[in-house]
Each structure stands twice: as C-alpha cells, then as structure tokens.
Design a protein around this nucleic acid. Structure first.
Lengths: 344, 344
DNA sequence: TTGTATGCGTTATCAG
DNA sequence: CTGATAACGCATACAA
C-alpha cells in the first residue's frame, strides 16, 4: 500500500489536514511545522494521490486533446506532431498534463469527449481541427466546458474561443502571387471539403481569380484527403484536362509531396512546366526537390497559443471568448516561376 | 453539480450499490432492475466520475507514454507519430486512455514518471526509447510497476519486457548488402550514441566489415542527433576525408534526408557517386529523390505490440517478462548502386 | 438478488 | 496556527 497523507501525519505528529495544508503551502502554517512535515514526507517517500486529489478538488490539471476522427490517419501528417509540440511545451510550462483521444470514428470520438467532460477526466479540451457540422464543438459549448478550437467555427457560432490563421487571406495572396507571375490557369487542390480550412482556402483562391477577372473553372478545383495519395489522385485528374493548369495552389504540404512525385513520374518539370504554392511549411517541406514554396502557418504557435487560451479559460471560466490569429508568411523556395509564354 | 450514482439510485428506487453493480454489469442483478436503473441513468444523463472510480478501484485504465527527454525535438521525427499510431490503435481497442509526458529535460521526465507511478495516474507505462544509463527503467523495475520498453535494455537488466527489432542483424545485413555491391569504403552515421539502437547498429556494421576482412576506420563512424541537421553535419565531416566513403549506413531516415540534401548541394550524385542505406522507413522516406533504400522496422507494429504487452502486464502483473522482436525488412529503392570501379 | 456500511486519499469547513 | 470531521463519487464486503 502506498504511503498516504495519514502516514505522514502520524510520523510528523500532526493532523492529516495539516499535512494537506503543507502540501498546498498554506501561509497559515508555521515554518516549523512545515519543516517537520516535509521531513516526514521525504522520509516516507510520500507522493500525493492524483485521483483522490482530483476527486476532492474537482480538477485534474489535465488537458484533453481531440484529434480528427481519423486519429489514425492524422498522425501521418506532420501537422499533428508539430502542433503537439506547441501544446506540449506550453502545457508543461503551466504544469498541465495531456490526455489523448484515440477514437477512430466520429462517433467513437464523440463518446470519448463526453466521457472526458462528464467523467471529470480533463479540465479543458483542445480541438485540433475544425470540421463543418461537427457535433463536438456544439456539445462542448452547450456544456459550457472550457475548450479552444484550432481553426475557426463554421456557421453562426458565437462566443467560441479559437486560434486560427487567416487562411482566406493567405490563399488569396498566394493565388495573387501566381497571377503576378503571369499564370492564368491556376488550379486549386484542397483538403477534405468539410474542413473549414479547406473552405477558406477555396474562397481566397476564388476571390483572387475574380479580382483578376479570370473565370472560375470548376474543373480546376479538386478536393482530396490531406495525404500524399490525395495529392497524387488530384494531379492526375488535373493534368488530364484538355487545358491543364500551369500553376497549383495546394492546401497541404503532404499532398504537395504526392503531387510533385506524380508530376516527376509524368515527366512534367517543376517549376518550369508548372508552378506550385503549398500550405503549412511542415518540417520536411524544404526537403522536396525542388524545395517547395509554401505558406508558413506557424503550427507550433497554433498549438502553443491554443494551450495558453484553454488554460486561461480553465482558470477563469467567465473570461470573454478570445480569437487569436497567428500570422502566416509565404516562404518562397523553388516551385514557382514566371510564365514565359502562355499557350492559350 | 453533476449527476451521481445516488441520483440515479433515488430515481430508480434502488440502493447506490445496485446502480454500481449495474454499471459493472454484475450478473447478480436481475434483468428487470438493470433495465430500470439504465432507464434512470439515461433519463438523468448519468456518466460515471472517472476520478472517483479510479480512487475506489485503484486503477485508471490509462497508459502513460514517455517520450525521450527531448520530447520537444522528438516530435520532429516521424518515428514518434507512427509509433503513437500503433499505440493509439491498440489502446483504443482495449479501452485504454493515453497520458503523455511533456517534460523537456531528463530530470523533468523522471519527475513526471514518479508522479504518474506514485500518484496512481496511470496503470502502466510505455517507454518510447531505450537510453544507456537511463534512470527511468531501473526506477520502474524497482517499483515493480508494469511497463514495457520499446528498444532493449542495455547492460545486465533481467526480467524486462520489451519490444525491439533485431537492430544488430539489420545493420549487419545492410552493410553486407553494400559490400556485395562492391563497396569497400562504407561509413556509418549513427544517432546519438547513448541510444541503445545506435550501439546495435554500430556493432552490426562493424561485424559485417570484420567478416569481410576490412579494417575498421574510426573516421568512418560518426554520431549525430536524429535530425536533418545531424545528417548534414555528418556528411560534411565524412566527405572532407582524404578518402571519402562510397557508401553510407545511416541510422535514421530523417538524417538521410539531411545527408542527401547536402550531397545534392555538393554536386555528389546518389547513387552514382555514393550509395546509401537507411533505417526506419518512415512514411515520407519514399519521397526523397531518389527514393531511399531503407530498412522497414514496422514502427506501427512496435507501438501496437508494446501496448499489447503493457496491457497484458497490467492485467496479470505476475506474468513472465516477454521479449518480442518485430521483423524488419530491407526496402530497396534507388539509393544503392553496384560499384563500377574502385579508385583505391 | 439487493441493501448497508465502510473505505479509497484528499481537500475544505468549522471549531478551537 | 492546528485539529476534527465531513464531503468528493464510487466499489465492495458483509448482511439480509
């Protein structure tokens, strides 16, 4: 049996409640008693029981991390480890622990979240993604449970704390950049369409084209899973068009890897035959050949700031909802090139 | 106040203990009562309190994951997300939750582990790495706490359950492979020297050379952090030798990315000028150009099996320690080439 | 088959 | 400044 607060109390000749106060470093305990108790703790190798503490306290000092329904697949995208780095760093600074969701389907995850919340397993939750018509966010809000979203809520949700990039503007900017390089046939390869980020990217892309008085071509817009395979499928589809694009806006670096790989197999050169701008700037992005131009969204910062916000919310539940926009910046590498002549 | 077992009991007109038994689906409760109680739970939206449960049970159904001391850096290597996939998958199957260490230094992590163990925060622990002279493993063993190691214990530890690859043999085999291709100047780029896996790789490499009656050249053996930068530093060092190697055995794919990148900058062609075999076969390995030949160690399997073993151990603490070796296999891609003529 | 009583290890309230 | 004592929510030994 582990050593408890009572054992310490006995050895130090004080009441259990006094020991508890020493643990909390209560100012109303004499230094002398503190020393005596601490010595006893040391001697017995005492460590507070986490569950008992949480039960009495109604707080766990733990943050729940909710991955997209395909937790399994998600780990294949370097976005998640990187955002975890940010979360982990801040959580550690603040003395919070991390509890991970493991569910594979949307329903399983929802159940997990309910358990975390109702079971008092975590004090707050970080949603690592924002999906259209997701049940979790409304549930959390209705429960008035501290949480923060990485991404932005879709639709008319009010009062939700979130951390996001300005994905619309970023997409608009990169499209304009390609426009300035002389491209008129710019395609868009988005991630899954029910992710809000995909919607925002698409809007930015379209707005840029419209501002340039270019027609929106449905054939130039495709959506795929944010995986290498997704990129491959997408580019096959695009290059099969009678008028294939000369430039690409791709929602995710990992897809871009797939795109570039397939392009290389087809003998199409980047950037000579086709230009590409991508999103995320994950760590390995600079390792493509040629190294890809991509929008750095500061993934680490997203995680770090999200954690900061949940912890704030946990400590002061009445706090006004906050929205933090993490700045992005285009990292120009070698996948974009000025159009020399346009064959249409 | 959340709804408790008592509320349910009241509504269902039974004793709290009966409700508890219904939750546990005790066979000694009549179907009729079960239905009645379940209806009441449904009606009130009852969810068991996790901490109270753990306290009474002395078990949490949670597994602690311990990352290498540089948790922060570690996430940069795709090994970890992939092993997490394996862990997460199995844990989820078995209804276990995952608790993550966040410490940055060795001391911090040690403290975290002590808290997890003594605080009863987790039922078992998975150590994601095996480091020479690590304090955590001996501590866990001395506490007789259920844990499993990914890797193998170094030195004369007995009775430790672990999951590993045969890293020695794998390294020996790939070196022999390069030998068979006619290479006589084979260098070894290892990870940090206090990881056991590095030691095993090195031994396998050396044994292969000795068997071939080739001299061991200290200058051909370098160690670096398992990051891209590590690979870059290593290759600079090696190519500066008066007799640079014509082939490389590299401990980790991410390092290989760094190596290949630097090589390409130096105008040295792979595999024409230099051959490379790497380890791990992380998901992006096939995306290097040219795609790298690497040993697939089944990272997912390591995580999956490790989880399987801890859970076994948690359920039957008296179980004999087990050692599982996950098979590896060399994935030949395009970074190795037969030597045409040897200039020494 | 079900109810009663007690304990799990802490914290918090209330006296003193 | 410190000591009893009662929660916290659930599980289980013992009764019935």
């Amino acid at each position: 049996m582990a050593v408890t607060i009572k054992d310490v109390a006995k050895l130090a000749n004080v009441a259990p409640s006094t020991v508890s106060r020493v643990i909390a470093n209560s100012p109303r305990i004499s230094q002398k008693t503190k020393d005596k108790v601490r010595e006893a703790m040391e001697k017995l190798g005492y460590h507070p029981n986490f569950n008992a503490r949480s039960l009495a306290n109604k707080s766990t000092n733990t943050i729940g991390i909710v991955m997209p329904s395909s937790a399994n697949k998600a780990f294949q995208n370097p976005f998640f480890p990187e955002v975890m780095r940010g979360i982990s760093t801040k959580a550690h600074q603040e003395g919070f622990g991390l509890y991970l969701s493991t569910g594979q389907t949307e329903d399983e995850i929802f159940e997990e979240v309910v358990h975390m919340v109702q079971g008092g397993r975590v004090d707050g939750i970080i949603l690592l993604y924002s999906r259209i018509n997701d049940r979790i966010m409304p549930y959390l809000q209705q429960q008035n449970f501290p949480f923060v979203l990485i991404g932005r809520p879709y639709g008319d949700y009010q009062g939700i704390t979130y951390v996001n990039n300005d994905n619309y503007k970023a997409a608009k900017t990169v499209t304009e950049y390609l426009l300035l390089l002389g491209h008129h046939h710019i395609a868009f390869i988005g991630g899954e369409l029910d992710f809000v980020v995909t919607v925002d990217h698409k809007k930015g892309y379209e707005q840029a084209l419209q501002n340039a008085n270019l027609p929106l071509n449905d054939e130039y817009v495709v959506f795929q899973q944010e995986l290498q395979e997704g990129g491959q499928d997408a580019i096959i589809q695009l290059m099969s068009l009678t008028q294939p694009p000369t430039a690409l806006v791709v929602s995710d670096d990992i897809m871009t890897f797939g795109v570039m790989r397939m392009l290389s197999e087809m003998g199409i050169r980047v950037p000579d035959d086709i230009s590409i701008v991508s999103f995320n700037n994950v760590l390995i992005s600079e390792l493509s050949s040629p190294p890809m131009s991509t929008v750095d969204i500061n993934i680490f910062g997203l995680g770090f700031e999200a954690t900061n916000l949940v912890i704030e919310k946990i400590k002061q539940p009445s706090l006004e909802p906050k929205n933090v926009i993490i700045p992005h910046k285009l990292v120009k590498r070698q996948t974009c090139k000025k159009v020399v002549f346009q064959n249409s």
